[in-house]
Amino acid sequence: MSALAHVPTPSGRATPLPPPRRGRHRLLPYLLLLPGAAWLFVFFAVPLLQLAAASLYDPSGSLSTGYALTWAFSNYPDAVQAYWPHFARSFGYAGIALVLALLMGYPLAYAIAQKSGRWKNLLLVCVVAPMFTSFLVRTLAWKTILSDNGWFVGLLRDVHLLAPDGRLLATPFAVILGLTYNFLPFLVLPLYASLERLDHRLLEAAGDLYANPVQTFRRVTLPLSMPGLIAGTLLFFIPATGDYINAELLGTPNEYMIGNVIDSAFLVRLDYPQGAALSFLLMAAILAVVFGYLRRAGTQEVL
């Protein structure tokens, strides 16, 4: 400490170094955070406050007569009463799609991470490649595949898995299938990241302790992959719940989700108070589900 704090002079005397400027070093982390904080404030916080104000407008107003902030909290219970089936349908479709994605995505991520060998990079590209195409184009492709005169429906009819007058398009099945396909990479990639770091010695140790493959998966593989599993399920479920493209293109008004109602409120009916109230209700419901899920799973598993 003394050798670093003093500098020898020609006369042989030690001159003490000036103390470090702690104030500047303390401000440096905050200065580095300033651009990101400003971005979030301008493009997230301000629009969110404007949306909150819009949800409290007088519902009797319009674009022609003008809206007024009258603190109309009744917009929220009115929105729930009018569109609670769409909320239930959104969470139901997203939940079923998540289960299907887990049944397909977990074995796929495990195979790529542990069994693919030199084909690992190619398989990862195959998982990510559909995302290079527009979300809209991918959904329209499924509309063609599931059409009544398409080859897939014709094949199901030929093998008697579908009635001669049966159809897949414009059904809940088509909407759930679209959600599963479009958001599957968001589940597979975090799972792959966790499974790729799995230590094979732990699996071998489980075998040495006479654990069968099912016990090894339940006691070793699954707990170690929980960070990727939790992150993947959240990345899948949150956008799937608020989606409206799949229901719009692959379903009918009977399959519309809450995202379709919000889209119609803002762009068709121009009912800004109701659209804003529905948006906040959807956000609150998703946050409640996410916090409940993290509380049950344990937030330490995500770290």
Results as ranks from 00 to 15, higher is better:
residue 14 A to L: 15
residue 269 R to I: 06
residue 133 T to M: 14
residue 258 I to L: 05
residue 130 P to V: 06
residue 287 L to Y: 07
residue 240 A to S: 13
residue 81 Q to S: 14
residue 66 G to M: 10
residue 254 N to V: 04
residue 14 A to I: 06
residue 129 A to C: 11
residue 287 L to C: 13
residue 176 I to V: 15
residue 143 K to M: 15
residue 112 I to L: 12
residue 288 A to Y: 02
residue 176 I to W: 10
residue 251 G to V: 08
residue 162 L to R: 02
residue 240 A to L: 03
residue 27 L to I: 13
residue 85 P to F: 12
residue 268 V to Y: 03
residue 228 G to S: 05
residue 218 R to P: 03
residue 231 A to Q: 09
residue 108 L to R: 12
residue 259 G to I: 07
residue 28 L to Y: 08
residue 292 G to C: 05
residue 128 V to I: 15
residue 3 A to N: 13
residue 79 A to W: 06
residue 46 V to R: 12
residue 168 L to S: 03
residue 123 L to V: 09
residue 24 R to Q: 12
residue 300 Q to N: 09
residue 230 I to H: 09
residue 203 L to G: 05
residue 251 G to K: 10
residue 2 S to F: 11
residue 294 L to I: 11
residue 137 V to Q: 13
residue 215 Q to G: 08
residue 240 A to N: 03
residue 123 L to T: 11
residue 26 R to S: 12
residue 212 N to H: 10
residue 26 R to C: 11
residue 29 P to H: 04
residue 170 A to I: 03
residue 228 G to E: 04
residue 262 I to P: 14
residue 295 R to F: 12
residue 175 V to F: 03
residue 254 N to R: 15
residue 122 L to G: 15
residue 206 A to M: 02
residue 176 I to K: 13
residue 243 D to W: 00
residue 90 S to F: 01
residue 90 S to W: 01
residue 282 L to D: 01
residue 79 A to S: 15
residue 299 T to A: 15
residue 217 F to E: 03
residue 30 Y to Q: 13
residue 33 L to D: 09
residue 265 A to P: 02
residue 188 V to M: 08
residue 11 S to N: 13
residue 13 R to N: 10
residue 254 N to P: 03
residue 56 L to V: 10
residue 100 L to F: 13
residue 38 A to V: 15
residue 199 D to L: 06
residue 224 L to V: 00
residue 79 A to V: 06
residue 225 S to M: 01
residue 152 F to A: 14
residue 62 S to P: 09
residue 44 F to H: 11
residue 209 L to G: 01
residue 144 T to C: 06
residue 217 F to D: 02
residue 137 V to W: 06
residue 287 L to G: 08
residue 55 S to E: 05
residue 170 A to Y: 11
residue 165 D to C: 08
residue 1 M to A: 14
residue 303 L to S: 08
residue 136 L to H: 09
residue 103 L to M: 13
residue 195 L to W: 01
residue 291 F to R: 13
residue 162 L to Q: 03
residue 91 F to N: 01
residue 161 L to A: 09
residue 250 L to V: 01
residue 60 S to E: 11
residue 164 P to K: 04
residue 161 L to C: 06
residue 75 N to E: 10
residue 258 I to R: 00
residue 178 G to W: 00
residue 21 R to K: 11
